[in-house]
Design a protein around this nucleic acid. Structure first.
Lengths: 343, 343
DNA sequence: TTTACAAAAGCAATCGATTGCTTAAAAATC
DNA sequence: GATTTTTAAGCAATCGATTGCTTTTGTAAA
């Protein structure tokens, strides 16, 4: 049962004393086949348990109904939601998804892209890894006639379709909210600056301070604090300052914000009265903590759907010219207890 | 730049005045090619930006270094971790992953399997959907010479390789722990009984009660409570009983346990003093809630790795006979505040 | 120098489906 | 009834890489 050969259109043809081309036409719903033989072929195909060999079909047709996705980590909430969104659309279109994770490693990202090129995928949806070095691999995608859509973490210097969230605006809004609540010394936990998203979030932070006439205090800006542990560590340092902050915007992630909360609770600092906390991403747990954490929802699943739709509705049809190449998914500030100093 | 044809081995052959077969042999590291021409071919391949066409290669070789994965939902913590584990192993082996989600729909599950069969994948890793109806589609996988490994949610009646967590033992352990803590009336939130995992968890619950001489009280067993909302609803009903439970084992998920906690807090019931709560899955948030929730860690990423390793180390090599076909990943009870009545 | 043998390269079929083109058969028109 | 048109089916090349087999070339042994 294991090693039997799969039935091909030739098997069907032979059984019915027909030519393979007629079988192919019948199965693909093509015309040029009489209704009776068509039904006969369909019936026989079912009997013989026929399944089309996509490899042969794709090879001949020169197209591959497959899309490659490269993300830093599959099992990170944001990305798994994006993928779910992508899948929802591609499934409908009868496309397959090949998923790769770069594990935040540039080297692996390059290898993933290589594999996808070999696979002849129609398009690659990609979000760059944290130790992004250069875009040679991205350029080579186009060289092989494969389309590319970048999302979330993108290389700005490349002129590709992109799906983004308004990182800068969101950060601006979050910090403005903190200021409105009366916080005076607002610290920033920032991520690797080679990633556009973190650069933009920092820009939003600086802008908000500027707009409200707040000074920029370098010692309140902490680098690479994007896990719970690193967020906690940074918070300890910040709170040990002669003039500690009275609010912390963990622009890197909600996990960092959670680290902030950990330290605050450990040191008996009242949130939001003595310390305001704002995260980023609207992870499920932010709603559950005591106090619940103010954060920014990025509509990750929506991002995925948009990426996929961009491919099917625009790129695939070749509507390239005059097109807006960047889609922005507007994020939303979710205000919760951790920043409600004024109640 | 977009529509140029990709270079093939024929292009390389033509440029070097060689035959395509030599090029093929050189590129695959085959012997029967002199070292000099081999180097020449490799150099030219690089110059012409050659990439192997996997479709053609796979078609000819009759094998496809691709594995299909079908899960109910990609963006569910447990499954995204399993996938991450799978990917870690398959990536190393140079295999690709095609990922599909059934969205808990039997119909979609069937379609996913169909697609993967058409794609000629080498193996399918599958966890069945909640409204599983029958295993015709699973049987047809073998009919097409494709291997199958079931994990977590499996169809017991099929003799396939399986990777499981000790659901029954875990549930038994959890309920025993509740009993040891002095809880007397332990309720169960159970999931759809057409899924093996929920049947087993219920069995573990019943066993533990039996072993400790506790009566089985039907009104304490609630069906289909596997979301936060449904968990909350069930809890309201349970607490409204003349003799309400003093502990609830949310065997379905931590989300259900969270629903229980919601209601307890709303109604001013003290956890763990008046009500013990135990969840299932060790979702990140269970550690964060106040009080933190006792739960069961399933080592989901480990499950993924085991599934993939099972394929590469056993199935692929055809070590079928005398082999243990079931791998059990032992889960671990994580005891936290929500059940520590005795401190 | 001739023969024997190994190494290197070429030839051609193959994997399975698709498709432009040709031929055969059936239906419609005059 | 003859001719044109439509419809149905067959033929054969093609997609790109692989591989068993044959031929050619090069080298070693006789």
């Amino acid at each position: 049962m294991e090693n039997q050969k799969r039935t091909t259109i030739y098997d069907i043809a032979k059984k019915l004393n027909l030519n393979a081309s007629s079988v192919s036409r019948a199965l693909s719903g093509n015309s040029n086949v009489s209704e009776t033989t068509k039904q006969l072929i369909l019936k026989t195909a079912k009997e013989l348990n026929y399944r089309q060999n996509s490899m042969a079909s794709n090879l001949r047709k020169g197209e591959n109904q497959t899309i490659g996705v490269v993300v830093p980590r599959i099992n990170q909430n944001f990305f798994s939601n994006v993928i779910a969104g992508i899948e929802e659309v591609t499934y409908q279109k009868g496309y397959n998804l090949i998923i790769c994770q770069s594990n935040e490693s540039y080297e692996r990202e390059v290898k993933c892209v290589d594999t996808l090129i070999n696979q002849h995928v129609s398009c690659i949806f990609l979000s760059i890894s944290a130790d992004f070095e250069n875009n040679d691999h991205l350029k080579s995608i186009a060289d092989h006639g494969i389309k590319l859509i970048q999302f979330d973490r993108v290389d700005d210097t490349m002129d590709t379709y992109k799906v983004l969230t308004g990182n800068e605006e969101a950060a601006f809004e979050a910090v403005s909210h903190l200021i409105e609540q009366g916080y005076k010394r607002i610290a920033l936990l920032e991520g690797p600056q080679n990633l556009n998203i973190f650069r933009l979030r920092k820009a939003g932070y600086l802008e908000a301070l500027k707009k409200h006439g707040f000074p920029i205090i370098d010692e309140l800006i902490r680098e690479n604090a994007w896990t719970r542990e690193l967020g906690a560590k940074a918070t300890e340092d910040l709170l040990a300052l002669p003039e500690p902050p009275d609010a912390i915007f963990a622009s890197t992630s909600d996990f960092a914000a959670l680290g902030v909360l950990d330290v605050a609770q450990r040191e008996g600092i009242k949130v939001p009265q003595q310390l305001g906390i704002c995260g980023f991403s609207n992870e499920a747990f932010t709603e559950i903590t005591q106090p619940s954490i103010t954060t920014i929802d990025q509509f990750s699943k929506e991002i995925g759907k948009n990426v996929a739709n961009l491919y099917f509705q625009k790129m695939k049809k070749g509507v390239n010219i005059d097109e807006q190449k960047v889609v922005n998914i507007k994020p939303q500030l979710i205000i919760r207890s951790s920043t409600l100093k004024n109640g």
